[in-house]
Each structure stands twice: as structure tokens, then as C-alpha cells.
Amino acid sequence: MGLTPAFAVFGVFFALPMAYLLVVTFWRIRRYRLTPDFTFANYQNVYGDYLHALVFTIVIAFVIACITTLLAFAIAYLIRFRSGLFGQVILLSALATLFGGYLVKIYAWKAMLGAQGSVNLLLITLGLIDQPIEWLLYSPTAVILTLVHFMLPFALLPILAGLRGISEAPLEAARDLGAGPWRITKDIVLPQCRTSLFAAFTLSFLIPAGDYVTPRLVGGTETFMVGNFIENLFIGRMNAPMGAALAFSTLLACALVLLFVNWLLKRVFTPKWGH
């Protein structure tokens, strides 16, 4: 009984709309109007016309998630094990970037990466380059940089929570037995925060996979992600069935990637003392 309101909210605001959208994927558009039908043509078109965009999106989101999770782990590790009270300052600094807002961060990177941006000016001043680097902005690099920066605080929190849950006892025992820092990290720390790593990866993978604003603003002519096409199918072409089919295909592809990553993390970071 206690969970009934939660289930009701979940059902009305998530499950039902999603179910409707799933039904729409089998409908058709006739003269720009939604027409009930039962066809797999939308899915066929998605795999025929948008597979490249889907694969590109999954790859770029995967790269972003890997970089973000690695960086977040490094920062969280520093806060938990290496920096003492200074760790709180690092944590606050990382979380303070959340106040900046999404668009502000995008435009900040635009200002930094442009031909006359601070990055290029710094490199020129240091004498490392003669001409501004053109590919810094309006490129996949810019999309990756911007989204890694945006996702970092979100990935940091679950990993830090996981690291804080690790007891000192096994760490001290390992040290006493002569294990080095890398061995301790690999065999004790990482296995014990595996679920946190997965949560961080999931967050930093799913949000970029669905993003369509960042690639439009800082991506170049070849950085259009699947979100851009879903948006265009719904709004521009008024083709909700194909847009919904592309959205569900993206969901499926994301789920497969996450299942794989979960399997990989389990395989690599299983506690050694369990064997």
C-alpha cells in the first residue's frame, strides 16, 4: 500500500506514455497525419537510414562515459584517500560547477575553444603553435570535452559514495601484508565500488546518448547525433512513428551497451578473495 502512490506516478507519467510511444512505432504517417496501423516499416527505415547516426552516437557517448568515469574515479580517489580535509574543497569545487547550468557550460567551452578562444591564445602565447587549431571547436572533440565537463560532477558523487563505504580494515590488512597502492586499488577498492562505477558510467553514458543541444552548438558539420534526428523527425517531418522507432532503437542500443559494461565490470573487478 505504501508504494501505491509511487507506482501510480511511475505508471501515469512514465510507463503509460512510453507504452503509447511504443504503440506509435507501429503506426504510419499519411499526409502528415498519424494513422493507426501495424507495420515494422519504421524499424526497417531506422536500421536502413539512421544506423550510422545511431552507431556514431553510441560510440561518442561510450567515449564520453569512459573518460568521465575515469576522471571521476581519480578525483573521488583523491578526495577519499589522499587529500584529507582538502578533499572537501575539491568536492565543493567540483559540485560548484553544477550551479553554472548546461547552456552556460556549452557557451563557456565555445568561448574557450574558438579560433580566438583562450585555449588557442594560450598555445600561441606559449609559442607552441603559430596558427589557431581549427578542430578544437565545431568538432567531435568539442562535443566530448563539453559533455565530459558537464557530466563529471554527476559521475563523481556515486563513486565517492562507493569509496566512502569501503572499510579501512581490509586496506590496512593488505598494506600490512605488503600490497602496493596499485594492488590495493585493483583488488580491493575497485571491486568494492563496482556498482558505483557502473552507476557513474550509466549516468555519463545515457545523458550524452540522448543529447541534441551540445552537438548542435559545438559539434561541426559531421557531429549530428541521434537526438538531432529524433527531434527533426518529431518536429520537422512530423513523423512521430519513425521518431518513436528511432528513440526505442536508441534505448535498446543503450541497454545493450550497459549490459555489456556491467558484465565487463563484474568480470574484471570480482574480488579476488572470492575465488
Binding site: K110, A115, Q116, G117, Y138, R216, L217, T221
Partner: peptide, 19 residues
């Protein structure tokens, strides 16, 4: 092309930044 500008504001920025 350098880019497909999402808005005229972005296009202006590109001119101002000499891109």
C-alpha cells in the same frame, strides 16, 4: 563548411571571432 549555425546569434559569433 566550417559549421551549420544553429541560430543567427551563433552565425554572428562566428563572424565576430573571425571563424
Amino acid at each position: 563548411l566550417k559549421a551549420i549555425a544553429p541560430s543567427y546569434g551563433d552565425l554572428i559569433n562566428m563572424y565576430v571571432n573571425k571563424e
